[in-house]
Design a protein around this nucleic acid. Sequence first.
DNA 1: GCTTTTTACGAAACCCATTTCGAAAAATGT
DNA 2: ACATTTTTCGAAATGGGTTTCGTAAAAAGC
Lengths: 345, 345
Amino acid sequence: MKRKLSLDDIAKHFKVSKSTVSKALNDSHEISAKTKAKIIAYAREHKYRPNLNAINLRKEPSQSVGVIIPNILNYFFAQVISGVEKVLNDRGYNMIACISNESYKKEVAITEMLRKGAISGLLVSLAEETGKLDNTDHFEPFLNKGIPVVMFDRVSSKLDCDKVTIDDTKAAYNATEHLIKSGCKRIAVVSLLGDLEISKLRINGYHQCLKDHNIDLDQSLIFEKLEKSFMEVEIRKLLSAGKVDAILGLEEEAGVTSLLTANSLGIKIPEELSIICFTNGILPKYVVPSLTSISQHGYHMGQRAAQQLVNRIEQNDPEKPFETEVIKTTMIERDSTIPLIKAQP
Amino acid sequence: MKRKLSLDDIAKHFKVSKSTVSKALNDSHEISAKTKAKIIAYAREHKYRPNLNAINLRKEPSQSVGVIIPNILNYFFAQVISGVEKVLNDRGYNMIACISNESYKKEVAITEMLRKGAISGLLVSLAEETGKLDNTDHFEPFLNKGIPVVMFDRVSSKLDCDKVTIDDTKAAYNATEHLIKSGCKRIAVVSLLGDLEISKLRINGYHQCLKDHNIDLDQSLIFEKLEKSFMEVEIRKLLSAGKVDAILGLEEEAGVTSLLTANSLGIKIPEELSIICFTNGILPKYVVPSLTSISQHGYHMGQRAAQQLVNRIEQNDPEKPFETEVIKTTMIERDSTIPLIKAQP
DNA sequence: GCTTTTTACGAAACCCATTTCGAAAAATGT
DNA sequence: ACATTTTTCGAAATGGGTTTCGTAAAAAGC
């Protein structure tokens, strides 16, 4: 690849000064029509594009931060982006949004692109594949250069940086407990999340809760790595067998698919089957019956992650220890679970 | 606001050269520990932040384009962003994503920010408020400076630039025709879109189709500027009156709300009421009965808009006339409409 | 004590476009 | 024909870093 054409190159070609070229291309009145015409023609022919960094060097510096999310079509991440964008904008930063599409390779490519560019900070939620490979080396160069990184939701314990997460374990524990208290005894776990750390945490919460309530763990009720195309079939088998009275969906799609499958099998919700799922997106509200779900407060999480990052950028204090902020989840009770009757005080 | 601290400022303070400062801050081995320590301490204390444009000036130039969308929580725009991001990434551009949140003021603020920054091009879908005010002056400066702008979906005829849209009129016409052919006679229009140009186009298509089929237009069946909070009440009134046999939703939420409201009133779909809505998002698939909808192919639209823009950037040919590319919509037939029986050939 | 090596730093080039100011050349006025 | 204005262009400064290379001074070697 030949290097880019600069003003000097054009100037040399016409044996004029680069000021003349610059003025000609900016249509200055100082330059004669003839000169302008030939310079503009030449520039156009050779596809001259000014170096924007050079132009910008003279303007007020503008800062931007990179944001890497696994999938923008996921409502939760859309909420996060929404929150991130608000904070960054309010504090005068541009957001360079990148989508890893759950691919490790793409994620690495993005980090390489961002390293070439000029970012002041980086917000990341890991791709599923990255979670499986458990390799976060591609983020080290940023930290080494003093560019702060904040991870959110899909974090990795391997990388030493600020993080914003929800308490996945506790949220799963609470959901499971709600199911148990409302009378469920055989609670299945359904998930598409695969090898992500958050998946393990949520299953841990489920385990602990069963243990605390003296319910034996039945591994055959845990479907943690379903593939999307087989999910419905698997759930149908599970429900047809009639051995479960509740389902905990580790993300929205698992919960919704369970609900629709149960509907189609004529299983009554919540009388015969209770369902709770993580991620309070659009579907749980609209599905019939509506689905009790755990809100991870994506918008708020995005805001907090961005605030952490900007604080880090602006105080530039490497001494400050890294923090992990845990955002409380909220269970939104809807019609797919039996409400717990609480004694009036 | 005081201007930023530069390397030179630090250099003067210690009466050293700026090379020394630069090396010290980059932890170069050429600088003694003592010197490094005091320079780093001073820099940290005074919150020195290097000018990223200056750093980047020496690296390979990286280009970025700005993208302004009204709302990332809208699935259609998330799809568009997805397509945009893919193309930009493949062609070596960064995407600076901005969200206008349907606000004219925010949109103007974003354009001002982007003007300060260094973007090679701009992709825009107008905020609703901008559509209502019908003012696109804030995009002129880009065009005047030779920075190409491509509008998509929510375009304005006021701005002379490349555009990518769907044929809203035709799509509405086809949907209306489908309803008519399946036996519907009183077709209501329900919409949250308000004053957007696309809203008018869609209603035009509806008008034309009625006319072509000799059905009298009944203005009382058109609810084009519903407010979100009153929508359900209005629809309930409409359906209770029992005077309509079909609903055309100009966006997803209107369609889904109509369907759910009809369900709750015990109206049978599609026997007593047919529903078609624009925007094939997540809900139409999952709702019961599933909802016939018009796919605007957001991902593809995003890709095309980005391709148009990059082509414009790279060929840098102001002579090329502006084009409006129209993307064909597809009606996805589901269970909320009566299928047309087609004669076998 | 003298040579060699290492350490520590500075001067200047470089990245690329914009812009101010000065000066030569051309056009205009008288 | 000479003075004045306008047009047209170039040299140089500017923006803020990085990097190469040269050179003192200090440390090490013999």
